[in-house]
Design a protein around this nucleic acid. Structure first.
Length: 451
RNA sequence: GCGAACGUAGCUCAGUGGUAGAGCGCUCGGUUGUGGUCCGAGUGGUCGUGGGUUCGAUCCCCAUCGUUCGCCCCA
């Protein structure tokens, strides 16, 4: 009887402790950033009632939903009542609608939890992954200033994450919608399809997009499509692009176009005032976001040095978050960081390395001194230093090997020699050196070395 | 849901129609209180599973399962 093959289900990211610590630090950094801007924590259950979760049925997302069913109900052939959430926005809508009268608006919440999608395996795709969301929900209305604040938070967080240069690409859906409208694309569905094609521009290239736009389902004239792509191609001076858009809006543009351009200009102005430098954002009309519920501002963030990772953070403005659950009008704006993908790819790229533990290891060099080791550890813990004792007596080489594997950097050695002198030897496994010092100085020394 | 590639040691992979190899890892050792590095020894696989062709299959054929990559969509 051979044991069952131990293995993780496909599409999950399971980490060894040292990587888990590194991941935890990424989460901590994001959390601190969100809190710095006054967002409040919310957690919701991993599953929701099916009726609540699948409100806008028929979408792509529904095909990827995991249903939750008890065995008893399953045996009775009942339909599942519960399903795992596939994002944090739908649960947020339910949450806000449910607790509407107990919340302070505009409601600023952050939420960092796992979501589930039954995806086909692919690079950088997970079936279970973390999303770190922030959203601001207004009651009846929500000023555009919030659209400017979101990228400011993202700028703060990604700067703190220290993952190299990044660009927050920003757009307003009304602009392309307005342009398409002005170009005679009246059909709502055709406009949706056109937006989706334009979104693919960086990926499949101009020629392919042109071809797709002139295909029968969309039916744009080549020349019109070409003019559109000229505008949409990213790069160049932001203010210049805004100027061109303004001209277009004034010279016979539709009201929707004018509205989009003014909104975008206002958001850009706000972002700059909030301290987002020009090098960290770019107006990019190809950013449209597939999700239909975005109505105005949309964002996608990319790491300049790792374009292959794709968007690591995206979101936008939606006019009415919870229309399925309440009659109240609740507009919002928000963004989501896909940390699982981000972490996984950064680790692959070598930008994130297994973390070194902050724990100090007290070795047992001499079993006679056991109680001294225990007391030493207690002293250090009282002084605020994470301390572990190698409780299992073993040869010192083995104890050091253990520390090395566990990613512990500092090891304390105290044999009969040190004990007699009232000193402790601090060995640095990373640097290789060691230093003997009075026991009284130990805590301060370690604190300094650990940063 | 559609399309493609790949399944050989714990990992990364070589290999041949005649019942298998490397590197890394892992364990132990290189005596007194020093990990990683270095040196030495050891440990390793019904060649994914089932069937077919063959005197004989890890290799050829079919199926199946699994993994990975792309499309759709998305963090």
């Amino acid at each position: 009887m051979s044991p069952i093959q131990p293995k993780t289900p496909p599409g999950v990211m399971e980490l060894l402790p040292r990587d888990q610590v590194a991941f935890q630090r990424v989460l901590d950094t994001i959390r601190r950033g969100y809190e710095r801007f006054g967002f409040l924590p919310v957690e919701t259950p991993v599953f929701e009632l099916v009726d609540v979760l699948l409100t806008k049925s028929g979408g792509e997302t529904e095909k990827q939903v995991y249903f939750v069913q008890s065995t008893g109900a399953l045996q009775q052939g009942k339909k599942p009542e519960l399903a795992l959430r596939f994002d944090l926005t739908v649960p947020l809508a339910r949450y806000v609608a449910e607790h509407e009268h107990e919340l302070a608006f505009p409601f600023r919440r952050y939420q960092m939890q796992r979501v589930y999608r039954g995806e086909r395996n692919q690079k950088g795709r997970f079936r279970e992954f973390y999303q770190c969301d922030i959203d601001v929900i207004g009651k009846d209305s929500l000023p555009l200033a919030f659209d400017a604040e979101i990228p400011a938070v993202i700028h703060h967080v990604f700067t703190e994450l220290d993952v190299g240069a990044f660009t927050i690409r920003i757009n307003n859906r009304k602009i392309l919608q307005g342009l398409l409208e002005g170009m005679g694309l009246g059909d709502e569905n055709a406009r949706m399809l056109a937006l989706r094609e334009i979104d693919k521009l960086p990926k499949i290239g101009r020629d392919q997009v042109l071809a797709n736009l002139s295909a029968p389902e969309i039916g744009m004239a080549d020349e019109t499509a070409s003019r559109l792509l000229d505008l949409a191609t990213p790069g160049g001076d932001q203010d210049h692009l805004l100027g061109r858009l303004r001209d277009l809006a004034r010279d016979g543009g539709t009201p929707l176009l004018a509205e989009g351009v003014e909104e975008l200009a206002s958001v850009v102005e706000g972002m700059r005032a909030l301290g987002v430098p020009d090098r960290n954002f770019a107006i990019d009309l190809t950013i449209t976001r597939g999700l239909d519920y975005y109505t105005g501002t949309v964002y996608e963030t990319f790491l300049n040095d790792y374009p292959g990772i794709g968007s690591v953070c995206s979101g936008g403005r939606y006019e009415n978050l919870a229309s399925h659950y309440t009659k109240s009008r609740l507009p919002g704006v928000g963004i989501s960081i896909g940390v699982t993908r981000l972490f996984y790819q950064l680790r692959e790229a070598g930008l994130i390395k297994p973390a070194t533990s902050r724990t100090v290891l007290v070795t047992q060099m001499d079993e006679q001194l056991r109680t001294d080791y225990y007391r030493l550890a207690a002293e250090l813990r009282a002084a605020g230093i994470d301390t572990e004792i190698h409780l299992e007596p073993a040869k010192i080489a083995r104890q050091l090997k253990y520390a090395d594997r566990a990613g512990i950097r500092f090891v304390l050695l105290m044999g009969s020699d040190e004990a007699a002198r009232g000193t402790v030897t601090v060995k640095d496994l990373a640097e290789g050196g060691q230093q003997e010092m009075p026991r009284a100085d130990l805590a301060a020394h370690l604190r300094a070395r650990l940063g």
